[in-house]
Design a protein around this nucleic acid. Sequence first.
DNA 1: AATGAGGCCAACCGCCGGTAT
DNA 2: AATACCGGCGGTTGGCCTCAT
Length: 280
Amino acid sequence: MGRAPCCDKANVKRGPWSPEEDAVLRNYVEKHGTGGNWIALPQKAGLKRCGKSCRLRWLNYLRPDIKHGGFTEQEDIAIFALYNQIGSRWSVIASKLPGRTDNDVKNYWNTKLKKKVMAGQIGLPTTITSSSPSSSTSTAHIHHSPSPAPPPQPPLLPAIKTQAYSSGEQRLDTNVDFTQKLYSEIAQFSTTGLMEQPDFGRSVSVSPSEDISAASSSSITVDNSSSNGCVNWSTDGVGGYDAFLSELGFGPTGDFFGGFGSQWRTEEVSPYYYSDLATM
DNA sequence: AATGAGGCCAACCGCCGGTAT
DNA sequence: AATACCGGCGGTTGGCCTCAT
């Protein structure tokens, strides 16, 4: 026996919300909150809507802190980097972009950003040389243990041309520093909980032993010459995540990538995202 | 001016995981 | 342990709008 429907579909209104309905829902939630029960809310509020529909309307449109449209280039890069890293986890990606909803990010990706990326207008660097010589160097290796047949791949972008961004060359130059730091964040994410990927028939091992989290200005290299896919980065040893996040308009470090290590079990993230980084 | 194509985005659908009973 | 229920999520749809022909 299947699940009972969440509401009587014959007696609920569907389709676009009217301004009056918006006002009723907004007033109710602002006065009483959701009460932890969206299903009961429409009846209490006097709305002929499904509870799920109310929840969606509130979360995606009526919430006071919502931003609509006007994605910045920094948000573009963050979305792209996160998509590359974790795939279509829109709610997770949106949670790193204050004021953005999963629906917004998903729509933006599907309608605009994906095309931008495919057109080469957005990309992640293969090599960036920091302006100051690094004082320490760390390396993350992605090892692909022998596997007879690769598993189905998660949705990934077509290969992004990166040769143009060879060593010393600037790209997306409005924000190279941002991208460097973003990579550092991703690299740190890699060290926090993604050590093995048995479910995919491959393993990912990540060094360094050194703590790279102090990096604020990093040099990152993806070694395309190695079949192992080797991501190198070096740091200047200067702290500054919070400054970085502040530049992006994000909250403290923990609000950005900090939750990743504990948020997913290791088997939930495909190593293809790493290999994709390495082969782009 | 008419119309067809494509873009955009709000909303819906169905599934999943967590929790209460 | 089994079942019911709910919130949350990602994928998809459908309608409106703009633009090109």
